[in-house]
């Protein structure tokens, strides 16, 4: 069994078998990170480039460690300015990188669709490291891995995703993946943060968080971008925390052993209270599993004659 594409652009369209393959492969790679010598030679001689147009310490570090633990040569190119401002187009930048013979290009970009744009024009494998508010496939995979690791299954679980759904690629990728794996999904947030027709992706919409977390197996909190207050998406942090923050009291409405997840970085006291974040949450397990999942993805994408 192999992945259908040379790239990992999104979870949308992936089959349960493909997701299962990545998660199964990730468990083997998780063991590697727990050894003294945290390295296997699988990608020896391969070149992996992190091309990040959007700052992100966590995701870049995770991809970088994943590549290095697979023995690939990993290079980071971080550019906070847009390609337009720099005077070179994304395509030209990427073609230059490819000309230096790179095997896997991880692209993080604030424009939705940028990885797809490159994937159709380059022969390297493109991994979407998060694009705009479209998809963040490796985040959803590590979330699913963590759920499966903690609960033994995904199918039949109720997962509540809370926050700015409209501007969240994490939410979209998780909605696709969790649906495919048979979970029931609830999304919750203020009406200003709900994109049009989101229910059509297969999620039940809530504005009342108490209802949304009632009996949930998993609660996935999204990071609130505080600067969105200026665009009228929410009136202020105080009200947001009151209506959509996860407190211990609110958590008690969920299943007793409910998993609390967050893609990070967290705004303590805004979307999640410190006692919940530090107490029962699995936020750090997510981070650990991120490396394993990214190793699995690179491993699976680098095998095989291209275009199979």
């Amino acid at each position: 069994m192999a992945l259908a594409s040379k790239d990992l652009l999104g979870i949308q369209g992936m089959t349960a078998d493909e997701i299962g393959l990545i998660l199964d492969t990730a468990s083997s790679f998780k063991d590697v990170s727990e050894r003294d010598i945290k390295k296997v030679p699988s990608l020896r001689g391969k070149t992996v480039i992190n091309l990040f147009y959007e700052a992100s310490t966590r995701t870049r570090t995770s991809f970088e460690l994943a590549g290095k633990r697979l023995s690939a040569d990993v290079l980071n190119i971080a550019t906070s300015t847009s390609s337009v401002a720099k005077g070179e187009t994304l395509l030209d930048t990427a073609r230059n990188i490819e000309a230096m013979k790179c095997d896997i290009l991880i692209l993080r970009h604030f424009c939705s669709g940028a990885p797809e744009f490159l994937a159709s024009r380059l022969t390297s494998s493109i991994i979407n490291g998060g694009d705009g508010f479209h998809e963040h496939p490796t985040q959803a995979l590590l979330d699913m891995y963590t759920i499966r690791e903690k609960r033994g299954r995904i199918e039949g679980l109720t997962v509540t995703i809370v926050g700015d759904i409209a501007h969240s690629r994490v939410a979209r990728s998780n909605i696709y993946g969790l649906n495919t794996m048979g979970a029931e999904i609830r999304i919750c947030g203020p009406a200003t943060m709900m994109p049009r027709d989101i229910e059509r992706l297969g999620a039940k919409k809530y504005h009342d968080m108490d209802q949304a977390v009632e009996g949930a197996d998993v609660i996935m909190m999204l990071r609130l971008q505080l600067e969105r207050q200026a665009t009228g998406l929410f009136p202020g942090v105080r009200e947001y925390a009151r209506l959509y923050g996860l407190s211990r009291e609110r958590l008690s409405r969920a299943k007793q052993d409910a998993l609390v997840m967050h893609p990070g970085p967290i705004n303590r006291g805004v979307e999640i209270s410190s006692d919940v974040a530090d107490g029962t949450s699995v936020i750090l397990d997510q981070v650990t599993n991120g490396v394993a999942v990214r190793m699995a993805v690179m491993f699976l994408l680098s095998g095989g004659a291209k275009g199979d």
Binding site: Q12, S112, G113, D131, G132, F133, H134, E135, A166, R169, R172, P195, R196, D197, I198, R200, L201
Partner: peptide, 13 residues
């Protein structure tokens, strides 16, 4: 256009 497709593609509508 702002609608289901923009939601799916994650583009501003």
């Amino acid at each position: 256009n702002e609608g289901f497709v923009s939601t799916e593609l994650g583009l501003n509508g």
